[in-house]
Write a protein that binds this DNA or RNA. Structure first.
Lengths: 218, 218
DNA sequence: TACTAAATTTAGACATGACGAAAAATAAAT
DNA sequence: ATTTATTTTTCGTCATGTCTAAATTTAGTA
């Protein structure tokens, strides 16, 4: 399994291409910052190897083994992110790039030991679930903060955008995973929201709310 | 800098190709388990980039920047080995392969943090010195056990052969770095030695003694 | 339904890194 | 000094993964 192949599988997974759900060549190309023609080439190759199902002009989806492989890479990526934050004091906006490299290290023993060292974490620093060794993980019930109604209360459980810029913004404004957020008001004009967090009211744009996952409190 | 280039630089370094000392194409090919013709190709490329000096039919040696690069890779390799042993409980015969992969991870911050976490170790699990960030390292005074005379005493400080087989043999026979070894006798017939270690006499072949570095005690 | 626009694939090309066979240079030996 | 053997290089080829330009298919619209 080459690095390129692994990256394609991972991308298809992130675009939702599991359980016969088709992902378009264009979508993959855009996500990977490559050209559609390159994606077509690779789609053929992965289909040949039985890692994806591919029908010309229709798109690709992960096969059973393709999904298994993708999950193992995602598992490694997320565990390394936890390691970088917990053990090496990286901040959550610095870990992605490095984890992109570390996820390709081939050693089952290594990732198992990292997993143990960290106490078998269930979520990465951005709140994304970490698949278990056999590919099981629980997609947490969550919704975007932007989908909540005024008056409702939620706990911040994850971020959609993991760009350094967005994460630094959250740090600067003292918004962290685990914080409780109450929607005070939503502005009709621009959908910006007033939220109550850490006992204080603050205003955030729709775009911010659209990239924060919360778990609704009853 | 590609992975292949890094591996060539590392190999040239290990074959002693620094400070204008020429290393032959054949030697590199053998060490890397590749063909001399491939080495020639890469030698040209590295010379083009100013990482080695290369004269046709003469051999290659590392340039100043080539040496610097090689040292940084060796540093990473050895620090990762320490990490695997100290933090993740790998045994010293399991670390090489994984470190061969980890040494290519590109993140200065990562390796600096690993270095800190480990307390800035000076030697790797096989006794090889770890270059500092600016490429300085002290080659310890050492000699092969096979070069010692009967009656002399030394402390085991490193291994020449780092193969899993050899290291497992040492484990099995309770020979570890730091142990004091006295040469009791050398057999004329086959150069096998009787040594006193941990208060007990044992016999080891010349080949074993030829792969153990000791520091002579006065 | 026919036409256009968008998405996708094909075909030819390139860079990297490796290989084998044959040619060239160096080293060794008579 | 000339032949022989060894080392090293050159040359053509191949696999991987990418790209551009052109051709094809699909989808959308009049």
């Amino acid at each position: 399994m080459t690095r390129a192949e692994e990256n394609y599988l991972k991308t298809i997974f992130h675009l939702g291409g599991s359980s016969s759900n088709l992902v378009s060549t264009n979508a993959i190309a855009e996500q990977m910052e490559t050209k559609p023609s390159s994606v077509t080439d690779m789609a053929k190759k992965l289909a040949e190897k039985g890692l994806v199902e591919y029908t010309k002009y229709q798109g690709v989806s992960l096969s059973k083994t393709g999904l298994k492989t993708a999950l193992s890479i995602v598992r490694k990526h997320r565990l390394w992110e936890v390691f970088l934050v917990e053990t090496l004091d990286f901040s959550w906006d610095e870990v992605h790039e490095v984890a992109e490299q570390l996820e390709h290290i081939k050693s089952e023993k290594l990732i198992d030991r990292i997993d143990s060292l960290l106490g078998h974490p269930k979520f990465d620093p951005h709140g994304d679930p970490i698949p278990s060794k056999d590919g099981v993980f629980f997609e947490r019930e969550q919704q975007l903060l932007s989908e909540m109604k005024p008056g409702s209360i939620g706990v911040c459980v994850g971020v959609k955008d993991t760009s350094s810029n967005f994460l630094k913004f959250l740090d600067k404004n003292k918004i962290a995973l685990g914080d409780t957020i109450e929607i005070v008001e939503i502005e009709d004009f621009d959908q910006s929201l007033t939220i109550k967090i850490n006992g204080q009211n603050m205003s955030i744009s729709h775009q911010i709310a659209n990239n924060l996952y919360v778990k609704k409190q009853e």
